[in-house]
Computed example of a mutant assay.
Amino acid sequence: MPTILSPIESEFATVEEAEAYDRWLRAEMEAALREADAPNVVFVPHDEVMADMEALIREAALRIAARRS
């Protein structure tokens, strides 16, 4: 029996639909990357990207504050 999801929590009606979509999307993305023939593609973990962006935002905020003083 499928596990029903709340429309507030998910755009999918069931967990099974969400998992099937996730599998399909990952397969499509992997195929696109293989077809792109891009040997220089680098995958950076989400946490690393977020840490880098937070550092950039902090640096920009400090520069703006320094200009205002």
Results as ranks from 00 to 15, higher is better:
44 V>W: 08
16 E>H: 02
43 F>T: 13
3 T>D: 06
47 D>L: 02
30 E>A: 04
12 F>G: 01
47 D>H: 07
15 V>W: 11
17 E>R: 07
46 H>N: 13
5 L>K: 00
53 M>Y: 14
48 E>W: 07
22 D>A: 12
29 M>W: 12
6 S>D: 07
16 E>C: 01
27 A>H: 05
33 L>C: 06
17 E>A: 09
43 F>R: 14
40 N>I: 04
33 L>K: 08
62 L>W: 09
57 I>V: 15
50 M>L: 14
1 M>V: 08
52 D>A: 15
18 A>G: 03
42 V>A: 06
1 M>P: 11
35 E>W: 02
47 D>R: 10
60 A>I: 06
42 V>I: 12
61 A>M: 12
7 P>S: 00
52 D>R: 15
43 F>L: 15
52 D>V: 03
6 S>E: 01
13 A>Y: 13
36 A>Q: 05
37 D>P: 03
35 E>M: 06
15 V>K: 14
27 A>F: 02
56 L>P: 09
20 A>V: 03
3 T>Y: 05
47 D>W: 03
46 H>C: 05
42 V>D: 04
54 E>K: 14
34 R>T: 00
67 R>W: 11
49 V>I: 15
17 E>P: 03
59 E>P: 02
2 P>V: 02
53 M>P: 10
14 T>S: 02
52 D>M: 12
31 A>L: 04
51 A>W: 08
8 I>Q: 09
12 F>T: 03
21 Y>S: 07
51 A>M: 09
44 V>C: 07
9 E>C: 10
69 S>V: 09
34 R>M: 00
40 N>A: 05
66 A>P: 03
39 P>W: 01
43 F>K: 13
49 V>A: 11
38 A>Q: 15
14 T>Q: 04
52 D>I: 05
47 D>E: 15
13 A>M: 11
3 T>M: 05
48 E>A: 11
34 R>L: 01
1 M>W: 09
33 L>G: 03
23 R>C: 04
24 W>A: 13
29 M>G: 06
17 E>Q: 14
28 E>L: 13
37 D>N: 10
21 Y>K: 11
37 D>T: 01
63 R>Y: 04
22 D>Y: 09
11 E>R: 09
68 R>E: 13
3 T>R: 10
24 W>F: 13
42 V>Y: 05
55 A>W: 13
43 F>P: 04
5 L>S: 00
53 M>G: 01
29 M>C: 10
60 A>V: 02
62 L>S: 07
16 E>A: 02
39 P>E: 01
31 A>D: 04
66 A>S: 14
64 I>R: 14
53 M>S: 11
62 L>D: 10
7 P>E: 00
20 A>P: 03
58 R>F: 07
7 P>F: 00
40 N>W: 12
48 E>S: 13
8 I>S: 07
69 S>T: 08
65 A>K: 12
67 R>S: 10
62 L>E: 15
59 E>D: 14
36 A>K: 03
60 A>M: 13
54 E>C: 05
26 R>E: 07
34 R>W: 01
67 R>M: 07
9 E>N: 13
59 E>V: 01
9 E>G: 11
68 R>S: 07
6 S>K: 03
20 A>G: 07
5 L>R: 01
58 R>L: 06
69 S>R: 15
